[in-house]
Computed example of a mutant assay.
Amino acid sequence: MHQVRIGIIGVGSMGNSHAKYLQANEIKDASLTAVLDNSEEKVKWLKENLKESVKVFSDEDAFFESGLVDAVIIATPHYDHASLAIKAFEYGLHVLSEKPAGVYTKQVREMNEAAEKSGKVFSIMYNQRTNPLYQKVRDLIQAGELGEIRRINWLITNWYRSQSYYDSGGWRATWSGEGGGVLINQCPHQLDLWQWMTGMMPTRMRAFCNFGKYRDIEVEDDVTAYAEYENGATGVFITTTGEAPGTNRLEITGDQGKVVIENGELDFWRLRVSEPQFNREYKGGFGAPECWKVDVPISGAETAHRGITQNFVHAILEGASLIAHGEEGIKGLMLSNAMHLSTWTDDWVEFPLDENLYYELLQEKIASSTSDKCTKSIPLNVEGTH
C-alpha cells in the first residue's frame, strides 16, 4: 500500500472539517475516497460539493462492502463511535475515531477488544496531545524534573455555552442524545491530558456534578471532582459551561517543583533540593527550599486534527508510533464516568470503575430523557462535540 484510502462516517461539522483537509491533499499519502451519512439532505449536498472521485453513501452496509476504503474516520454522535469502530474492524479497516471514545466504558472496552483482535491501526482524535505545551509537561514529569507528583489542579471554565446553543438541537445535552454534558462533550481532551501527562489514574474519586444548574438541560453543566492516587497525591478538576469570563489553568506540583499552564504559557519552578530532603536537613525554623524559575524551551507547533490524521496514516504505512492510541480513550472516559457515578450514588467511586453499575444507572437516565430523538435515530451527520 502506497496510499491510504480514507472514508469518513458522519459528515457534520467535524466530519466536514476532516473532508476539507483531505480533499485539499494536506495529508501526505492519503486520499478521501468515500463518505457515509444517513441524512438525505446532507447526502445531496455532499454529492454536489465533494470531488467526483469521492463516493457518497447513505447505506451503511454498502459503504463497508464497497472496497473503496482502507481506513475510516468516525465523526458521528458519541453513542455510535464504538459500534461503528467494531464494524469497521470486522471489515478489516483501520480506525480513527473522534473523541470521546464512547459514552460508557463497557462499550469502549468491547471496542478495544475488537481492535486488538483485528490487528488494525486504531487511533483517537486527541488532537490536544499535539500541543507542545502539554507535550513538554509530560516530558518534564517523565524525566523526573517535578519529582514525585503531589497535587494536580485543573480549572477549566472557559467552555461557555448559551441556552441557544443547547436549543439548536433536541439531542443536545440529553442523556439519550449525547450521554452527558460538559464532561462528555467539551472536556474529553482535558480528561485525557490529565492522565496522559502524569501517567497516573486515581485509586478513588468523589465528585459533585450539577445537572442543569445554569441552563435548561438534563445533563451536567457544572462539575467539581476530587481524586486520590496510590502515592498519596490528590487532584481537583473543576469545569462548567455557565461562567464568563472563564479560566483555563493547569497546575501540577511535585516534591521537586511546580509547573503551571495558563494563557498559552508554561511556567516552571524548580527546587534546588527536593522538599523531602530540605525538610529532613533544615534546622532553621522558618524557611523554605530555594526555588528557581526556569525558562523551559518550547519547540514545535500544534498540528491539531491534521497532525493526528497524518500520524494515523504514517502508522498504517510505516508502522509509526501513534500519538493517541485508540485503546487509551477508555482512560479519560473512565474519569468522566466516575464523576457521574459518584454524583448519582452520592459516594466515593473506587477504580477500576464498576462498569455494570454505571451502565445500569445510565439506562435509567436514558429512559427518562426528554430528547426528541432516541439514540438509534440520531443522524450520522450530527457531530455533537464542542
Rank of each mutant, 00 (worst) to 15 (best):
V259W: 05
P276E: 02
I316D: 15
V259L: 13
D255K: 08
E281H: 00
D267Y: 11
G300R: 00
H325W: 06
E218I: 10
I238S: 04
K283L: 08
E218P: 08
L266M: 12
T309N: 04
A288K: 12
C291I: 11
S274W: 02
S299R: 07
K213W: 09
A233R: 05
Q277H: 12
A244L: 12
W292L: 13
L250C: 13
C291V: 12
E230A: 12
G242Y: 07
S274P: 10
L271I: 09
V223F: 05
V223A: 07
G212K: 07
G284A: 04
G242I: 05
T303C: 02
G232I: 01
S321H: 12
K293W: 03
L322E: 13
N311W: 13
N231P: 00
G232N: 01
A301C: 03
V223H: 01
A227L: 15
D255A: 14
H325G: 10
D216S: 13
R249A: 09
D216A: 14
D267V: 14
A233V: 07
K283E: 09
Q256T: 10
I238N: 11
H305Q: 05
I217H: 05
T240E: 03
V273Y: 08
T234P: 00
K213L: 12
E230R: 09
R280H: 03
L271E: 13
G235R: 08
W269I: 13
I217W: 06
I298Y: 00
I308C: 01
I298G: 00
G235T: 10
G212P: 09
P276T: 05
K283M: 05
A304S: 12
E302L: 00
V313E: 11
E262V: 13
E265C: 08
V219P: 06
D222G: 00
G285E: 08
A225N: 04
A244K: 15
G246Q: 02
E220C: 07
G246S: 05
N311E: 13
V313K: 11
T247K: 14
V259M: 12
L266A: 12
K213T: 09
L250Y: 06
E228I: 04
E243M: 13
T239K: 08
Q310L: 08
K283G: 00
G287C: 03
L322F: 07
R249I: 10
Y214R: 14
L322A: 11
V259R: 04
R215G: 02
G300A: 08
H314R: 15
R215S: 14
G246P: 07
E302M: 14
A288V: 09
Y226A: 06
L271S: 06
Y226C: 04
G232W: 06
T234C: 08
E262C: 09
G300F: 01
F237M: 09
G235N: 06
F237D: 03
V296I: 15
Y282I: 02
I308A: 01
S274R: 06
Y214I: 03
F278P: 01
Q277F: 08
I316S: 12
V296R: 00
G232L: 04
F278Q: 02
H314N: 15
V296S: 01
E251P: 02
K293V: 10
C291W: 01
T253A: 14
V296M: 01
L271T: 07
